[in-house]
């Protein structure tokens, strides 16, 4: 597994009305790494993803990245000086619009699956696939290459048989997959998956876990998850967030036996499912 850093967050602070949702949070993510983010409700997991994807702005802090792939820099916006809060491959994310962050290579799946209900699965992925196209290209019929690209993304999540079904007709789990397919077709460097297995059957969870393992290495992935069975089964490194800080980090076994983690969960009367009480 590559060891160079893709995303480095330092002393990130986000406060809502004076309350620090993220409190001097620091985190490092390696290229190609699969990272699980757990923690009780309100620990700041979703807020962290919101900051990275540009949905909310950080109050202070720093996230740096070493531009280790200089050939990428050509097709990217020029590097901004290191003053900002989040740096991703030389981008200062905090000054960028959401869509520019996506173009820089960060894909986000939301906690509640958001897909385009009146479009078919194919068209959902097709919309995602065109994110780098020029405006005029949108008025021409789809090329063969694009169609294949869309189909292969659907195949990766096992939705190829549902290509012409409107997304509103999908089950909750299928919507999750469709949204993941919409990320995959964009081939982001970093995937932010907010509770990807919520509402999935056991079988669907397994498939999703296998998909995560297939993606690691070629993509960096951050997954937030409440389901401890899933975390135990598929996680590599787990980061526990609590009160906007990193509480613990390590393999899942070590995390679960960590007394601080146990206290956080039991102290809040919120034992993760299946965790040793």
């Amino acid at each position: 597994m590559p060891t160079d850093t893709l995303l480095r967050i330092e002393d990130l602070v986000v406060a809502f009305d004076g309350f620090r949702v993220l409190d001097d949070l620091s985190l490092t993510l390696a290229r190609g790494e699969l990272r699980f983010l757990i923690g009780p409700n309100g620990a700041g997991k979703t807020t962290l993803m919101d900051v990275i994807s540009g949905k909310i702005r950080a109050d202070s802090g720093k996230v740096m990245f070493d531009l280790s792939h200089p050939e990428d820099a050509v097709s990217r916006p020029t590097q901004v000086d290191i003053e900002g809060e989040i740096r991703f491959e030389g981008h200062e994310l905090t000054r960028m619009r959401e869509d520019q962050i996506v173009k820089a290579g960060i894909g986000r799946k939301f906690q509640t699956p958001s897909v385009f209900g009146s479009l078919t699965c194919f068209n959902n992925v097709e919309v995602a696939a065109g994110f780098r196209d020029r405006v005029l290209g949108f008025f021409l019929p789809l090329g063969r290459a694009r169609k294949e690209q869309v189909m292969s993304a659907l195949e990766r999540v096992g939705l190829e048989g549902r290509r012409d079904v409107p997304a509103s007709a999908l089950s909750h789990g299928e919507r999750q997959w469709l949204e993941i397919a919409m990320l995959l077709v964009q081939d982001p460097k970093l995937l932010l998956l907010d509770e990807p297995v919520a509402g999935m059957t056991t079988r669907e969870r397994e498939r999703t876990g296998e998909l995560l393992h297939a993606l690691e290495g070629s993509h960096s992935i951050v997954v937030t998850e409440h389901d401890m069975d899933f975390v135990r089964q598929f996680s590599r490194t787990v980061t526990v967030l609590h009160m906007g800080r990193v509480l613990a980090e390590g393999r899942v076994e070590a995390i679960q036996s960590d007394p601080r983690v146990q206290e956080v969960y039991t102290g809040r009367h919120k034992t993760p499912a299946g965790a040793p009480a």
Binding site: S53, K55, R97, E98, D99, V102, K103, R108, F110, S114, V115, F116, G117, S118, L119, N123, N124, E126, V127, A128, G130, F131, R132, D133, G137, F138, F139, L140, P141, L142, M182, Q186
Partner: peptide, 24 residues
């Protein structure tokens, strides 16, 4: 055209289109 799909996508969920990398 694909733009038509994008229009419907914006109608359905504007935020998602934004986070799919479009200047909505």
């Amino acid at each position: 055209s694909p733009f038509g799909r994008l229009m419907v996508a914006i109608r359905d969920d504007e935020e998602r289109v934004r986070f799919a990398g479009y200047n909505v």
